[in-house]
């Protein structure tokens, strides 16, 4: 079944590749991946656990801002942007070119919601 889920993610990545999307990762709060797809343009360290795990901590801190639960975060660097969806107990991370249409990529949350909900039971909350 992972091949189906992975190939679905791969097809989503292919659909948005022309829009600048380079990688999608679905991980637990510690950055351990459940599903991960990427193209060759991603820096090697971008999908490592010690980098992905920081997102879980950032989301937890953002939850304590006093403005409700954190839903998403966008980090825009010089060449890359990272979009993070908080789908507790999972995290969905998108890595894209900084020139990619952020608004378009934010819509990916709806597209991935069903699959992420389905596999979230695998992770302890």
């Amino acid at each position: 079944m992972i091949e189906d889920a992975t190939s679905y993610m791969q097809s989503v990545l292919e659909s948005y590749r022309k829009d600048g999307l380079h990688a999608i990762a679905v991980t637990d709060r510690d950055g351990v991946p459940l599903l991960k797809v990427a193209d060759a343009e991603i820096p090697e360290h971008a999908l490592r656990q010690n980098f992905l795990s920081t997102f879980g901590m950032a989301t937890d801190q953002a939850n304590k801002l006093g403005i409700g639960k954190n839903k998403l975060m966008v980090f825009a660097y010089s060449n890359i942007q990272i979009i993070l969806f908080n789908k507790h107990p999972l995290l969905v991370t998108l890595i894209a070119s900084v020139n990619a249409n952020t608004g378009l990529l934010l819509k990916l949350e709806e597209q991935l919601h069903s699959l992420v909900s389905c596999i979230s039971s695998l992770v302890d909350a």
Partner: peptide, 18 residues
């Protein structure tokens, strides 16, 4: 360290109440 990116330019946070 991870992305070899020298500069973070923007951070956007979307929460339930702000």
């Amino acid at each position: 360290s991870a992305l070899l990116e020298d500069k973070l330019n923007f951070l956007l946070l979307d929460c339930e109440n702000g």
